[in-house]
């Protein structure tokens, strides 16, 4: 009986550990980016799942940003705003500032930056 108890205990512990491992919160979004315009979430993209480059044209109040999504990378590659800050920003980098186009109210950021909690 004592041996059976220990076996039962062992099996239950293993099952619980497996459950904890499967159900525990995982670090999500470290390769996933969100595209917001005027505070509204437009699109979520897991860059690790991108197999071939493509572009997303976004128009807001008559102005356009062209976003290029590549395997592991995202950048604003063209914009008709005056300042071009979003284009000059280059690709979104871990630990770096989100890509922001103030005139077109566009923000591209990591769901969960793998390096920092915020950038100043």
């Amino acid at each position: 009986m004592k041996t059976r108890s220990w076996i039962l205990l062992f099996v239950l512990l293993m099952a619980l550990c497996a459950g904890v491992l499967l159900l525990r919160p995982r670090p999500q979004g470290q390769t996933t980016v969100c595209i917001y315009q005027d505070g509204q979430l437009l699109e979520t993209i897991d860059l690790s799942q991108v197999e071939a480059p493509y572009t997303i044209p976004l128009t807001w109040k008559g102005s356009t940003n062209e976003i290029t999504v590549s395997p592991g990378s995202i950048a604003v590659t063209w914009a008709d705003c005056g300042c071009q800050t979003c284009v000059n920003h280059g690709p979104l980098q871990p630990g770096g500032m989100p890509i922001i186009c103030l005139p077109n109210r566009l923000v591209i950021k990591w769901v969960q930056d793998p390096v920092v909690d915020a950038v100043a």
């Binding site: 920003h89 630990g95 770096g96 390096v115 909690d117 915020a118 950038v119």
Partner: peptide, 30 residues
């Protein structure tokens, strides 16, 4: 402008990146 209240859940400090002015998409440290 970043301002943090308290510590992160779990008690660790917040990590704030400092933008690299020569590469504004990146950071020079934290």
């Amino acid at each position: 402008n970043v301002q943090v209240l308290g510590a992160k859940p779990g008690g660790k400090d917040w990590t704030v990146g400092i933008t690299d002015p020569l590469d504004p998409g990146g950071q020079l440290g934290t």
